[in-house]
Design a protein around this nucleic acid. Sequence first.
DNA 1: CTAGGGTTAG
Length: 623
Amino acid sequence: MSTGLLLHPLTLHVPPPTSTSNGPPQPFSTAGNHHRHILSLSETCTSMSQLKQLHAFTLRTTFPDETATLFLYGRILQLSSFFFDVSYAFRVFDSIHQESHSSFMWNTLIRACAHDVSRKEEALLLYRKMLGRGKSAPDKHTFPFVLKACAYIFGLSEGKQVHCHVVKHGLSGDVYVNNGLIHLYGSCGCLDLAQKVFNDMPERSLVSWNSMVDALVRAGEYDSALELFRQMQRSFEPDGYTMQSVLSACAGLGSLSLGTWAHAFLLRRCDFDVAMDVLIKNSLIEMYCKCGSLKMGEQVFKGMRKRDLASWNAMILGLATHGRADEALGCFDRMVGKEENVKPNSVTFVAVLTACNHRGMVKKGRQYFDMMVRDYAIKPALEHYGCIIDLAARAGYITEAIDMVTSMPMKPDAVIWRSLLDACCKKGASVQLSEEIATRLIETREDNQSSSGAYVLLSRVYASASRWNDVGIVRKLMTEHGIRKEPGCSSIEINGISHEFFAGDTSHPQTKQIYEHLKVIDDKLRSVGYLPDCSQAPLVDSNNDGSKEYSLRLHSERLAIAFGLISLPPRTPIRVFKNLRVCSDCHEVTKLISKVFNTEIIVRDRVRFHHFKDGSCSCSDYW
DNA sequence: CTAGGGTTAG
């Protein structure tokens, strides 16, 4: 046989066989310590084809003892998963006698599955098999992989069982295992369990802290996440993973001052490789856009040497949510154009459709929806239908929107019913239709939006039809079901201090001034020809005292803008965050106010509200 | 005798 099978560069690293230091290598069947050579070859193996040659040698070689053979097979398994050839690993594993499967082999295979997106379930299956065979017990290496697989499929009940096994095997003190548990509970939304594991750990690493910070961010506990970040710095230097979570927390709070601080922090302290750098920059774009600084978001985006799909998605979405639909669509064109040639995914189209939605561009929205299906073969998800249905309904094409709901292949969720009902309410659809939709919305049992939920919207429908009896019934139902109407809410951040405004709210210390200024704004708007559109904003009896006002007048973001115009020096950009979705008319009004008062005003939606205990939060409180 | 943990947009 020829050893020419093993090609350069592998052959370069073969230690000379002791028996034949000169001349051609001997056939492997005779020499007693050839297995050592194969073993050392396995250390320099650089590709799957080399590994296969090695495997072939192994099959032809007689090994001095069983242990040595199994050790080598373990290596081969390890290498095939290192080269991402999991099916080869499976074949090797299956070729080994069941009795001889070692913990190492099981672990290697489970790990290979846990790292492969399409094999997460297989990882759990293997683990179950491993337990069932009873030959090799799981150890501290097994659990982190199994837990990762559980986390990925959100298998909370499976994960809890694995947690029991961890305890049973006396591994509840292992730092790797515990990190896996934190990650699992964090991804499944069990914050208290994640916290408990974290608290009870005898030893913590940087990964433990990062996983816990991440769990808090996922749960929307941004404040606590930042507090933990502060604590962790007493023992660890943050890395890229940490900063990614910290940036998400800042984005979630909508706090530009915190976000800017985090940006400065990472410029000063952190050093990443290129892959991490792209990830961090993407988080920066998202953070700046969510905090209302589209300018900084764009700056980061433009300054990137390398961009990936997520960078484009973040930028398009940022432009879209700021109502800059044309630029968002332009960005999309550039992305798919010849020069950049990045293939969009389903998230890209959510961003593109959001751009159309925020500007009420019905036709364009439909075009992009069709383009997604036709040109990119992307199957529309619920979110895409949500965008396009909302778009149609808001523009008054309620029948068409309902047709889309009935023809789409999946079950509509509460968001879709709500946007239909909202449109019915604003466009004065028939009471019967509105009632039907409200019923469906309530049936989903997901309707927990107190300010624009089924009951509130339905009572508005009855009110605009002057069916006061029914309004009373709905009100009573709301009380019985314990649903409290919460007013719309906006916030504005000034010098690191956040101020909140509720529609109709009078609790701010400068209320009198704010309302006076609101009147100034409205008068100015009227003087340039703007009149609140009654069909968009029906008369509502929001105070339940017979005093009807345009709901537009009560919009909380207008209070916030009024406050901004009073307390900021002229021409300072004003950033307002709204808890409800910003719609096209809101962008219009804001644009008009910006023009009339010569100030840049940015309104951003869907930022989670951060309730400061003392009503304020400054940068220095945190760091 | 081998080894291991944490990222992604609505």
